[in-house]
Design a protein around this nucleic acid. Sequence first.
DNA 1: GTCTATAAATTGATAGAC
DNA 2: GTCTATCAATTTATAGAC
Lengths: 190, 190
Amino acid sequence: MDTRERLIESTRELLWERGYVGTSPKAIQQRSGAGQGSMYHHFHGKPDLALAAITRNAEELRERARAAFDGPGTVAERVTAYLRRERDALKGCPVGRLTQDPDVMADPELRAPIEETFAWLTGTLSALLAQGRADGELHPSLDPAATAAALVAVVQGGYVLARAAGSPDVYAQAIEGALALIHFQQKDNH
Amino acid sequence: MDTRERLIESTRELLWERGYVGTSPKAIQQRSGAGQGSMYHHFHGKPDLALAAITRNAEELRERARAAFDGPGTVAERVTAYLRRERDALKGCPVGRLTQDPDVMADPELRAPIEETFAWLTGTLSALLAQGRADGELHPSLDPAATAAALVAVVQGGYVLARAAGSPDVYAQAIEGALALIHFQQKDNH
DNA sequence: GTCTATAAATTGATAGAC
DNA sequence: GTCTATCAATTTATAGAC
């Protein structure tokens, strides 16, 4: 891995662990093993490097979500697979956590990949649920957009609960609780 | 309001807006109108002042939740009132946001009020749901602890979605989607 | 491309006058 | 109780040698 790549990877990790405000150029340099001058040769500064790292975090999140959504099985099975997918609950979401960072949200360039990621995620999940409803698998009363928003919110909020409790168990519990949203709207479960 | 009080209130606001890492003593002094020496006279330092502010934020959160949980109506009505209560979705949760702050979570004293608040919140909501189930209002298949965790998570995650989208609408949508969890488990809705 | 030197500003605090 | 002065460390760079 070359220096530029190590800088991006180190920044990705630090943004995940400490956020944008909590991540200093010095810390990035130390973790990546790159010197001061090296970092400023490859990137214009902290915001430029952060943009590269955030963009990559966002792309990876989408890839993993797409893998579950496009997987085998019924709509309910695919949504369940997405929700039950293994996640490091105590680390939280590398994209979602940046929404709490005022300096990230204040910069339109840094904010864009985050906004797009969640718009894509809720939109794609909503379309999947709508398809399940159209196919007769899910009950006609199901609101695809509202349910999609609720399910994505449970994942994001589950991280908050897990970190507050210092245990991933609450995260798993929230996910299982939310699965009732799908379970009860499957036509054969009434 | 005396100086000590203004320091706590200013710190509360700044922790909410910018988190612990993003809040400097200088910013606290400027917002509160207190001088350097004044702040260090009333508090031992940033962690000491933050503890006072976090504790108060946690207490207020509990008070507001208690008001909804202890309100009039059936269990389903009270839970719905809690979830639909007006919140500034773009500002997020003053307690939940601190779970993303590594320096807060690393300090047992700062972390304790956050852990306790969410333990109390999910526990109290779970007990309320269990009561609704025992009274025959909610379906026996409802899992009180898992449903409580999911509902609290939707609120916390709804903030993330709202901030990502730059609009409170997604928050409201997630809440409405989650209400189906209660709606479908009311015995007369089958 | 990487390194060291330098620097202005900020951070988190202490000291001591008033 | 509040103020100003001071301070070591860190932050976020820039400059220029190699």
